[in-house]
Write a protein that binds this DNA or RNA. Structure first.
Length: 363
DNA sequence: AACTCGGGGCT
DNA sequence: AGCCCAGAGTT
């Protein structure tokens, strides 16, 4: 690539040629064969946008394929059990989004007769869909004119206009939305929005952006100032506290006891080994809470899991179950998990790792 | 170890 | 309106 920027034809709605440059670049270099682009139905674009909110494209693709194989239509998702949805979400993180997705599918089924809403106001009423996601669905699937402002677009606009401040701040976000609206073309809106996302993902990346290939380089304020790395500004740093927890790996006949976590909060709705404080008497707890008598316990090495706002130090303890009170175990919210049986449940990443380690020790 | 990401929810 | 929260992957 020679780095020359072709002079851009201007139009009444795009006086600086910004949108035109993005659309032309997208046609040549953008992504056109992602699974949710073929076909780009509202349902498929919606699911992909929710997954892409928390994960990069390469990771999302296999999750998306599995999800579509299992829930090919909105009706299939609306009729599904939450546990089945969470199972397909295992490892993706941000499990509230899977719950919102499922909830929203049911709402569309009930409130809209199963037909996907086609206006931004109706979309914004659904859980898990905000302005950017609604705009992406209507633009990419239906060709309507809406701006979007995902992480990639924020980075492109923050650099192009040298917007100071952290985009998480309301004032900065408002400025970026205004800029996004300003650049959004009347024609070829889908190609433009896809192009902005592709630009942010492939050239206008966080570190060492590849400005020499960028169709917007000629007008980019950050580049003119040679300050590409200083936009957008990072989130203000904060110190993360450390929390500790005990996880009880109670094994019986090759199965491990899991309990369902509360529907909201960390790992909401997921299944997890019983937890307690480090100081707690877990032998007594097993008997009192689960009716289990456990054999000699063995502590496993601590492992650390980092969340956005704290570190969690997990202290696993393994213990064989010697006797159980059979009447207690059939309560809802409890299950004996076996990797090879078809348990339908969502697992957080460190829990999945723990169960995998347990499996390897047995083998 | 720091950084990322859009939306929900609380104050 | 302005915070805080959520999780795993990437760098």
């Amino acid at each position: 690539m020679d780095g020359n920027i072709t002079p851009l034809p201007a139009s009444a709605s795009d006086p600086d040629g910004f949108a035109h440059a993005v659309i032309a670049w997208q046609a040549q270099h953008g992504r056109r064969d992602l699974p949710w682009q073929n076909p780009a139905t509202s349902y498929r674009v919606w699911v992909s946008e929710i997954m892409l909110q928390q994960t990069q494209v390469a990771t999302v693709v296999p999750y998306f394929q599995r999800f579509m194989a299992r829930f090919p239509t909105l009706a299939a998702l609306a009729g599904a059990e939450l546990d089945d949805v969470l199972q397909l979400w295992t490892g993706l993180g941000y499990y509230a989004r899977a719950r919102h997705l499922h909830q929203a599918a049911r709402r569309i089924d009930i409130d809209h007769g199963g037909r996907f809403p086609t206006t931004i106001d109706r979309l914004l009423e659904l859980p898990g869909i905000g302005r950017s996601t609604a705009g992406a669905i209507l633009s990419l699937a239906l060709g309507q004119r809406h701006p979007i402002l995902d992480g990639n677009v924020k980075r492109v606009l923050a650099r192009y206009h040298a917007v100071p401040g952290w985009p998480g701040r309301a004032k900065v976000q408002h400025r970026l939305w205004t800029l996004a609206e300003h650049h959004t073309p009347r024609q070829q809106n889908a190609a433009y929005n896809q192009g902005m996302m592709d630009l942010g993902a492939s050239l206008c990346i966080r570190v060492r952006p590849r400005c020499e290939l960028c169709p917007l380089a000629g007008g980019c304020a950050a580049r003119r100032l040679a300050r590409q790395n200083q936009f957008p500004e990072p989130r203000p740093a904060k110190v993360k506290p450390v929390r500790q927890t005990r996880m009880l790996l109670l094994q019986q006949a090759g199965r491990v006891l899991l309990v369902r976590r509360p529907p909201a909060g960390v790992w909401g709705g997921l299944w997890c080994p019983p937890q307690c404080d480090l100081e707690a008497d877990y032998v007594a707890l097993c008997r009192r809470q689960f009716g289990l008598r456990i054999g000699p316990a063995r502590a496993w090495p601590m492992r650390r899991h980092t969340f956005s706002h704290f570190h969690l130090e997990i202290h696993p303890v393994y213990a064989p179950v010697q006797a159980e009170d059979p009447s207690i175990m059939d309560r809802p919210g409890h299950l004996w998990y076996n990797e090879h049986s078809s348990n339908r449940c969502g697992l957080a990443a460190p829990v999945r790792q723990l169960l995998q380690d347990l499996e390897e020790i047995r083998a």
